[in-house]
Write a protein that binds this DNA or RNA. Structure first.
Ligand SMILES: [Mn+2]
Ligand SMILES: [Mn+2]
Ligand SMILES: [Zn+2]
Ligand SMILES: [Zn+2]
Lengths: 137, 137
DNA sequence: CTATTTTTGCAATACTGTTGCAAGTATTTG
DNA sequence: CAAATACTTGCAACAGTATTGCAAAAATAG
C-alpha cells in the first residue's frame, strides 16, 4: 500500500489531493523544504493558505518537524523516528550546506547532552551545523 | 567613559541617537531581543527601517549575534566574546524558557563538537536548548 | 446514497522586510 | 569653529509573508 496513504491514515487525517501532494514532495525531497519551496512546486494547484494549514497539521501530528534557522524562514522535514501527536523526538543534528544551501537531517547523529548551569532544566535540544555537504565536498 | 560610546567608537560607527538607544536596550536586557521588541521599546522615536538597518550593522560589526529560532523570527543578543567585523565566535549554547519565553545566552556553555558522517565538513555550530530557566524553576 | 464532518479557496487584512532617494546629522578637515 | 564631506535617517512605495472568517466543496461515516 502507498506510503503516503499509510501515513495519512495512521494519523487519522482525511486523504485530500493537497495533503497527498505535499507529503509526496517531502518523501521525494533530499533535503528540508521551506513553505516557499512547496508553493513553487505545487503552484496553481493549491492555495497558499492550504499549504500553511497543511504544514501546521503535519507538524502537530508528528509527520514533519521544524528546523530552526537564522534567517526568518522555517524549514520542514519528514520525521523518521515515529513521532506522535504533540510528542516529537527528532533529536538529530541538522546540517546546512553553505555552498548548495541544502538542509539535511543527519538522522543518525544525535544531539549531544550538554551541562547547563545550576537551575536550568533542559527539555529539548536542537543543533544546527553549517558547512560543506557530501555532494559539494 | 560610557560603555555605549566605547562600543560604537571601537567599531568606527557614527554615534547617533538610534544606535545609542538600541545598544542601551541590549545592554539593559536580560535576554535576547527580537526586532519587534526593539520597535516596541523605541516606538515613535525611530523609523522601522532604521531599526532594521541598525541591527544589520551591529551584526556585521560583531556587536550583536543572531540566534536561530523555529518560528519565523530572529533573535539578537550582545556578543560578549570580542567578536569582530565579519568574524563572530559566539559558539555558546542558547536557552529558551518555555515558561517565560525568555531567550538567554549561556555564555559559558560551549557548543560541543559532534562527529559528522564521512564527507561533511563543519564550519559553525549552533545549539538551542528549550526548558525551564533559573527564574521559573 | 445521504448526513455529517472536515477541508479548501477566496477575500480581506495585518505583519514583515527591502529599496531609492532627498533631507538631516555626524564627523573630518582646514 | 565653520565649511566640506561622509554617513545616517525617514519617508514612500513596494514586495513578500502570514492569519482569519466564511461559504462552497470534498471526504468520510452511517
Ligand atoms: Mn530533521
Ligand atoms: Mn548568544
Ligand atoms: Zn552542499
Ligand atoms: Zn523562564
Amino acid at each position: 500500500m502507498n506510503e503516503v496513504l499509510q501515513i495519512l491514515k495512521k494519523n487519522s487525517l482525511s486523504v485530500t489531493e493537497g495533503r497527498k501532494k505535499i507529503l509526496e514532495l517531502f518523501i521525494a525531497s533530499e533535503g528540508a523544504l521551506a513553505h516557499a519551496d512547496i508553493e513553487k512546486q505545487t503552484s496553481n494547484n493549491f492555495d497558499r493558505v492550504t499549504v500553511y494549514r497543511t504544514l501546521q497539521t503535519f507538524v502537530e501530528k508528528g509527520i514533519i518537524h521544524q528546523i530552526p534557522t537564522t534567517d526568518n524562514s522555517v524549514l520542514y522535514a519528514l520525521c523518521r523516528h515515529n513521532c506522535e501527536q504533540g510528542h516529537h523526538h527528532d533529536n538529530h543534528v541538522h546540517f546546512i550546506c553553505s555552498n548548495c544551501d541544502k538542509t539535511i537531517c543527519l538522522d543518525d547523529v544525535t544531539v549531544p547532552q550538554v551541562k547547563l548551569p545550576e537551575g536550568f532544566t533542559p527539555l529539548q535540544s536542537a543543533m544546527v551545523v553549517t558547512g560543506i555537504c557530501l555532494d559539494c565536498a
